[in-house]
Design a protein around this nucleic acid. Sequence first.
DNA 1: GGTTGAACTGAACAGGCGTTCAGATAAACA
DNA 2: TGTTTATCTGAACGCCTGTTCAGTTCAACC
Lengths: 196, 196
Amino acid sequence: MARKTGSHSEITGPRIRAAAERLFARHGYAAVSMRRIAAEVGVQAGALYLYTPDKQSLLADLMRGHLEELLSALSALPPVEGPVARLDQFARFHIGYHIDRPEAVFVAYMELRNLEPGNFAVIEALRRRYEDALEAILHAGGQAGLFSVPDSKLATLALIAMLTGVTNWYREGGRLERAEVEAAYAAMVLRAVGVA
Amino acid sequence: MARKTGSHSEITGPRIRAAAERLFARHGYAAVSMRRIAAEVGVQAGALYLYTPDKQSLLADLMRGHLEELLSALSALPPVEGPVARLDQFARFHIGYHIDRPEAVFVAYMELRNLEPGNFAVIEALRRRYEDALEAILHAGGQAGLFSVPDSKLATLALIAMLTGVTNWYREGGRLERAEVEAAYAAMVLRAVGVA
DNA sequence: GGTTGAACTGAACAGGCGTTCAGATAAACA
DNA sequence: TGTTTATCTGAACGCCTGTTCAGTTCAACC
């Protein structure tokens, strides 16, 4: 038996990526077998290879896709005036975006060490572009005397680590509302760089 | 051939733990085989089982050991007066301690999902004790009107994420001195909670 | 109604996995 | 010097791994 009624490439492909993302996030890339991903989709392991050349590419494509969407969403933000407003906007954007995609974020931040060198370079470059966007805001605020940031690179990494940490504890329907979380983090970010 | 000259349990045991910690940090628990750990120590895989009942216990013991040392070092800090000084001390302690043990920290924060439920509960409880120490400081500072912390639990997790992130980029002999890094992070932590 | 071809199965491949254990080795003790 | 024993080897266990591929199925087209 093969090809059940109504099963198509346009359905199976995304389902494979979704299952892989969920399982990689939950158990880690190395701990998840191709057979387990296939079972989650309701397919035999061999069928996965119609959609990805190998397991490594499946991981790399997930991470690249996530980071490209992240960068695209960041650059689609409405323009705001001044470093303070831009930093506030960045913080709220980061929290909101990451809250909605905890599994994609988890994979993108935890599985770097499982990427082969070539893939690692690509992913790392995308990550760097995102960090640079924040660093540019911090640098501008520092130059304008609005922020107190002795080392903008260190501050960038510290703030991103703080913001990304939200995925470690936030759960939908939990004690705090989404907007409260965004506001709380944004406030801490602004104060951390010396905005009273 | 067995038992090379001068090889003893007191030497091999720690070497196994050190090799496992290094390899787990570098490649992840699931991606590291017992044979690879053994090869790193210069021993056959079977010999590892004289020192650990199984691979899972090796991981759990590493994590438990790290967290117990961390808590013990924290409680050995000299007492200081007031929430501001205590928070400054905590931030500097956390940075310094984590900078010196990047691999132990990496394992303790990244391999939680590879712990069996029983081990997970133990490790999570230790982690919670550490977080509670910070939250107590934040709460005291908030009550005294020294800190502006609307939600002390959120602030705790945000600050720990920020501080722990130092292990992602700091390298000995890099651009910044240890003391500079400690000071920069401590300053950001204090400002983040509203200390001018 | 017959043919095509995309989608999928199921079995197989070589190799690695965690773990066990009988036996070998050499340091320590009598 | 002979015996004991902690330490380690090397082979084996059953199972799982990523990947390949000949063959099967069925929706879509002629």
